[in-house]
Design a protein around this nucleic acid. Structure first.
Lengths: 220, 220
DNA sequence: TACTATACGGAACGATGGTTCCGCTTGTCA
DNA sequence: TGACAAGCGGAACCATCGTTCCGTATAGTA
């Protein structure tokens, strides 16, 4: 997929490194691009412009496109790097002693990740498809892992049995809004706690303080 | 414009419409524009292009701009028309016998509205600011009315006391996603039920079926 | 009917943003 | 050190979209 139609051979975003022998400056630039993109997508999400990324990485847009054939490819490369540890976490959580707690912990982590890297939330929201229909391999694996986690927690009698993985996905996507004006990280934590309360059979958590502590906004 | 809950008149839209004496063709075109915009924004949200609206209304873009100086103005005119009945509903709900049920009913209606008119959801999400900080007058009134409704329900011991209006706004905004691939109306209803369960002190609703066309949610 | 203020249509404009092209630079290797 | 493939930068291209402008059409009126 994504071979440049011009026949210009490009190091593919994901399965590179091994065969391809990059010149040292090219290697350095590639890393710069990834770092810049990661930083910017963390705060601005998918809406960062290519120009801005290239500028921050101190390369020209041409260089960026030599490494990643489209904006989507760059985006995906970063996303996969983010999702992989989540996948591992979900799998290990599924084997935990208390699947109920493990589930809640994982959901919390997922939402923290959204807060740390807006692009991830954007991906889940804008093309929520990816995570519920397993369009991409990695997304499919994640959703599969979370499904197992959810089932274990339900079998253990901790999560209400009528909740589906689609419900969970949808709620997570809902919490992914990153409009900082009111869905800031502390607020998100409160909402996560509420959502978890609704999923758990016998829980009523103490809501974390809202933005009084760290965040200064004009509200309230 | 699908749900004919009540005669939701399309707006006379602007304050100046009263004194201005429009030519009959101009009047007709204005109505066509509002109708086209309403239809398109219901499904596509704020992202509809002006060209598309003008085309559907069978007028030129110039005509559209003569009636509404910016895209935002047109958008706002439609939005106000949508929010007004909601405002009335919130106010009347605040005086209901059982504020807890009234609160839940209102929240459900709000989400239905999102499903029927994506632009409303977009407004709440993209500039969620409007509803939580009362940037616009009508938004401020709505949030004030819902605040009263929430407080009554809390005083009646139905809604957990640690929940704030900001929590409610944030959750509502979260549920406003309209990616039809997985946050379709039936799915949204399930999520609304879950959210309501998390807000209520002593409730565990029966989740509506996800694939049925119309659903009855029984609250206990 | 003739006149004119009002309204109309849609080409053109300017901003934005992703993508391509190509002349120039530089790392690498013999 | 010299040659050249690999890599670089960024102007230019193209598509989209909100908005403006202006020559033309017509409703309303005398």
């Amino acid at each position: 997929m994504s071979t440049g139609t011009t026949g210009r051979e490009l190091p593919a975003a994901a399965p590179q490194a091994a065969e391809r022998h990059l010149r040292v400056d090219a290697q350095r630039n590639r890393e710069r691009i990834l770092e810049a993109a990661s930083t910017l997508m963390a705060t601005q999400g998918i809406d960062v412009s290519i120009d801005e990324i290239a500028q921050r990485a101190q390369v020209g847009v041409g260089t960026l496109y030599r490494n990643f054939p489209t904006k989507g490819a760059l985006f995906e490369a970063l996303l996969i790097a983010r999702v992989k540890p989540l996948l591992a976490a979900a799998r290990s959580a599924a084997g935990a002693d208390d699947p109920g707690d493990a589930f809640v912990t994982f959901v919390r982590r997922l939402c923290d990740e959204f807060a740390d890297f807006k692009a991830l939330a954007d991906a889940m929201v804008a093309s929520g498809v990816d995570l519920s229909v397993a369009k991409h391999e990695i997304s499919g694996e994640l959703i599969a892992a979370v499904t197992v986690l959810l089932q274990r927690a339900q079998q253990a009698g901790r999560i209400r049995p009528d909740v589906t993985i689609t419900d969970v996905s949808a709620m997570m996507a809902g919490l992914s809004h990153s409009d900082p004006s009111f869905m800031n990280p502390p607020q998100r934590q409160r909402c996560v706690a509420l959502v978890c309360d609704s999923l758990l059979i016998d829980a009523r958590s103490v809501l974390p303080q809202s933005h009084l502590a760290h965040v200064v906004t004009g509200m309230r």
